[in-house]
Design a protein around this nucleic acid. Structure first.
Lengths: 241, 241
DNA sequence: CCTTGTCGCAATGTATACATAAACCCGTCG
DNA sequence: CGACGGGTTTATGTATACATTGCGACAAGG
């Protein structure tokens, strides 16, 4: 058979992550090795390996002696994850300001900032959502890498990978478009302020802005939950920051 | 043979962690499944399982396609880990102040604080080091649990488990005793201030104190490294906060 | 002498059989 | 009728054989 037989683990990781993020597997669900192995038509070993990696990522948790469970993220947990992400991003920004940065990385940040600027546009109708989400994610990633501390970078990455801590897409309906565009403008001004503060080596200010910035994500979370009340978990992934 | 055959994984985890913390395994070292399996006289499976768990803890890192490596902690990383711990502890304290706490947990914190008080004593000669370390660790643990956010608690626990981020013992020589006692007094006043700030629901102040508090750990790190220059990694575990 | 291709080894990836422990079911006894 | 106990079932823990890949050594050719 032509099967690769070498990427079973990756496949399992991918598939499990997809199911969790989609809401097919909801929090608290126990995962059974044998069942998954049969379902994916692989052996228990790569399944275990995959679950182990997802536990590392924070999507699963070990239930000692009882395999793994899907980690549950209630509304409050999502809010906390956003809070945490803001705190860590703030720390990263402060450290960058305090300790300095590599010029190349700063250039990258500034370039992305400029592209982000373009994609927002001045009128609600002109927003290029697709680019916006792409550049926004890139901006935050590059911002994190600006700080020289690998320890902080690592934890920040972890925090960002927590479900919905780093929402990636939300297409507002006609009615919401205006509000939404406004929040993009605010976010963008925070992005600019953040970079300026770091350049001016004002660590405390940079940190404060980063934390403030996280509140936009939180507000949008509330907005969506109120508006699309019956939404499936999947739609939680459709937030913007 | 009487072997339990059921706790092989735990044994392997324990042994590996011990070696890493002792400095027998230094950063960057690659771990080989077969070698370890033979050495511990168990099969590869529990060894893999153990390495996987230690990766989750942050002590090892996956080298894709090449097993695991001992995560390396240079001096700067240790400093960063302390910084990170301070930030997260500050966040936990702030959230506790902002969102409230369970009365039972607060009682526990206050009781531990009182016992900590006793073990410091008023004179350098009277310090009961053993109790001090015990109660200090307990105090910080209970403080973390005060905040209702599981997400933050979890990351805080992770940060504390990073090598040397949460130093546990340091017995000063005669010459350093006085300085050391002084730092304990400062630390203790911070502990008190932290609890007071939370009780007064002053989140920002609590956060600031927690961060300041972490600096004591950092200063002691520097102190030891300067004093006992040739010390093995093991002695890094002998810091105080 | 340097370059390049191939072969072989060593290490991890995968499958699977077997061991063990805990949950469950059911029957019996109080 | 409920609670306890033993057997059965089920899921994870462990051992081990086999597959596959990546790297290095060695040889052949430029």
């Amino acid at each position: 058979m032509a099967t690769t037989t070498q990427n079973q683990t990756k496949r399992a990781v991918f598939e499990l992550r997809r199911r969790i993020m989609n809401g097919e597997l909801t929090g608290g669900t126990r995962l059974y090795e044998v069942a998954l192995a049969e379902e994916l038509d692989i052996s228990r070993t790569p399944v275990r390996e995959a679950m182990s990696r997802l536990a590392e990522e924070g999507l699963l948790e070990r239930a000692s002696g009882r395999g793994f469970m899907v980690r549950s993220f209630a509304y409050n947990d999502v809010v906390d994850a956003i809070e945490l992400r803001g705190v860590l991003e703030g720390t990263a920004a402060r450290l960058a300001a305090e300790r300095g940065w590599e010029e190349a990385r700063m250039s990258a940040v500034q370039e992305t900032l400029a592209q982000l600027e373009k994609s927002v546009g001045s009128q609600p109708e002109n927003v290029d959502f697709e680019s916006y989400y792409e550049f926004n994610a890139r901006f935050h990633d590059e911002l994190g890498m600006l700080c020289s501390s690998e320890v902080v970078q690592r934890e920040l990455d972890r925090a960002k990978s927590l479900p919905f801590a780093s929402p990636s897409a939300f297409l507002p309906d006609q009615r919401a478009l205006r509000d939404f565009h406004l929040s993009l403008i605010v976010a963008q001004s925070q992005h600019r302020g953040l970079v300026e503060a770091i350049l001016a080596r004002q660590g405390a200010r940079a940190e404060a802005i980063a934390r403030e910035h996280a509140m936009i994500a939180r507000r949008n979370l509330e907005y969506i939950l109120r508006d699309a009340a019956g939404a499936k978990p999947a739609s939680l992934a459709l937030l913007v920051e």
